[in-house]
Structure formats: structure tokens, C-alpha cells
Simulated assay, not measured.
Amino acid sequence: MIPKFRIHGDGAELVPYTVPELFFFAGGRTLCFDAAREGDAIGHWHDEIELLYVTEGSMVYNVNGTRCTVHEGEGIFINTRQLHFFEESRCTYRCVLLHPMMLCANTYLEETYITPVTKNAAFPCCILKPEKEKSGGALALIEALFDEADKHNLLRLQSLSYAVWDEICRLAPKPENTVSESSRLSAVKNMMHAIHSGYAEKLTLEEIAGAGHVCKSACEKLFHTYLHCTPVEYLQRFRLQKAAERLCKTETPVAQIALDCGFSGASYFTGCFKKIYGCTPKAYRSSRKNTKA
């Protein structure tokens, strides 16, 4: 299982690099839709470029509010700082994340080949299909990167990263402008960050909207557009995710976890938890202990 990411000060996730010398992460798992309850269905973004390859099954990945279906044998490129999360997914996949600075050997390379792609507002993501010669090369390189990650051959990983970036550059459309994200997406991220940092407190719709400098109706519309849920639904889902993490990692009583995660009481928390996770908090904690054992 891919480890939970920590949140940076600006709301972006801090990726736990598997190869920290190169700002590189590789991980894979089998994912069913129910597994999205573990937090994969929560919208997030990070500075790293994401490359994902589906080896079995299919998934629906939401990128900036657009549903992207990735079938078996296909992959997806997600540009830096794009808002994304799993939706309907029953698949096995391999994933690599690499920070753009890994590719910036000098200023010329950065300005000529890296920034024009990472700042291209017309290129938030791209489906990689094997029948297309260009993206087929990218898929093979994702597999190679994944396979090499455990060997800790840094020169090989660096070389493969440049090779896959060469393929991505070939797929990039003509830039629309040099702005990496719209003001609307920035507003959504600011409102999500307000939830991430204040979920334990009583948050009102007005306070969430205020973080994005928008009115309440605009706030709700933006959440529906980018996250396909209301701000209140997102807040509750995030609270439940944090509660689930604490159930697994601590022995804190359920009632205390409920209060610490922003719920008004243990009974209400248990009801909300059961609707999403299919069991009570105590049963969830017990099942996770048995799994670890």
C-alpha cells in the first residue's frame, strides 16, 4: 500500500520519496472502489509529476474535475500541481512520481524542456495508449522506472526519467499561456487547504468560501465542478479519513477520536463512519489489527 502523504504548508502533499536522492517515488497496488475509502478518493495535489500504468482492470481518475478512464494496458500522465483523485477503480497499477527539479540539470534544460511543459495550462494530464507509438514508449519507460526503483541504481533512474520526459514533451500540446493553474482551481485548493488545516474545528460554509475569496454559492459550484461533491460532504469525508488513520495508528478511545476529528459526538460519528466504511469504528480498528498480524 502506498503510504499516506503529509500536507505541506500550502496544502500540497509531501511525497514520501522511495529514492530521496533523486526526489523520486515508486509504488503500486491493487485497488478496488472500496479501497478508495482509505483516502484515495480525497482530492489532492503535489509538486511531483505523476505517471501511472494500469496492468489489470481499469480506473476512473478525476483530474481538475474531468473524469479520465484508464483501461488495462494504458496509463496516465498528470502534470505538476493538478487536483486529482481516484473514482471508480478496480485495477492493479504501478505509479511513479518525480519532482521536476530531478530533470533540471541546468538552466537551459529547465527553461527549454521542463518549464514549458509543467507551466502549460493546456496540458494538465494525458492518457497514454499503447497503440500510439509515442505514448507506447512512455508506458514501457514507466514500467522500467518502477522495476529499477528498488535496485537503487541512481544513474539508471535518472536516465530513464529523462527518457520518459522526452516522450511526454512529444505529447504536449502548444502552450496556451505560462500560467499553470486557473484562478478557479487556485480558489478550490485554498478552500481544501482550509478544510485540511481546520477540520478538527467547527467549520462553516462561510469560512470555507472565505478561504477561496468567493461567495457561498460559488464555493458550492466550484466543489461540484472539481470534486463532484459539496464542501460539507468533502469536509465530512476528510474528517472520516483522519479518524480512520487514528483508529489504525493509536489506541485513543473512539469517542475522543470523534471529538478530535470535528464530530459532535460518538454516536453521530459511528453512523457517518458506517455509511462510508461499511462497519463501526471499533470493527474497523479490529480488522486493521488482524490484517497487520
Rank of each mutant, 00 (worst) to 15 (best):
Y108D: 12
V164F: 03
F33T: 11
T112Q: 13
R246L: 08
I7W: 11
A266M: 07
E38M: 11
L160K: 01
I208M: 08
L51D: 05
A200T: 11
V19Q: 01
C279W: 04
C261E: 05
C126V: 09
K151A: 08
P16Y: 03
G27H: 01
E38D: 12
V164E: 01
K189S: 07
A194H: 14
L259V: 14
C219H: 03
C104W: 04
E133T: 12
I76E: 00
D10E: 07
A163N: 12
G210N: 02
T30E: 09
L52V: 09
G73P: 05
G210C: 00
P116F: 00
E176Q: 15
A149F: 04
T107V: 11
Y277Q: 00
F263K: 00
P3V: 00
D10C: 00
T118F: 00
L171I: 04
M191G: 01
K202D: 03
P175Q: 00
E167P: 12
H224R: 15
D166E: 11
L128F: 01
E201M: 07
G137P: 04
C95P: 09
K4F: 13
I257A: 04
H196L: 06
D47P: 08
A35K: 13
T112A: 12
A36L: 13
E220T: 12
Q241Y: 14
A255E: 10
G39E: 03
C248K: 14
H213I: 12
D147Y: 11
P124D: 02
E13W: 15
P16G: 02
A266C: 10
S89Y: 05
T270S: 08
S286Q: 15
A149D: 08
D47A: 11
I208L: 08
K134D: 10
P116Y: 07
Y199H: 02
E251Y: 03
H71M: 13
R285A: 05
S286W: 06
C125I: 11
V15K: 09
S186Y: 06
K216G: 11
N79A: 07
G27S: 04
H152L: 12
H193F: 08
L171W: 00
R81Y: 09
L154Y: 07
G28T: 04
A35I: 11
V232T: 10
L185Y: 01
Y113A: 10
L157V: 00
T115Y: 14
R37T: 14
K289S: 12
S180I: 14
R246H: 01
K216N: 13
A35C: 13
G198F: 03
T107M: 12
M1V: 10
F24D: 02
G11Y: 04
L203E: 05
R90P: 06
H44R: 02
P231V: 02
K292M: 13
L22I: 04
S182Y: 01
T118E: 03
F86D: 10
F77T: 02
C215K: 15
N177Q: 05
D10Y: 04
V70I: 06
E110D: 11
A26E: 02
S197V: 04
I2D: 14
G212Q: 02
L235P: 00
K189L: 05
T69D: 12
C32M: 11
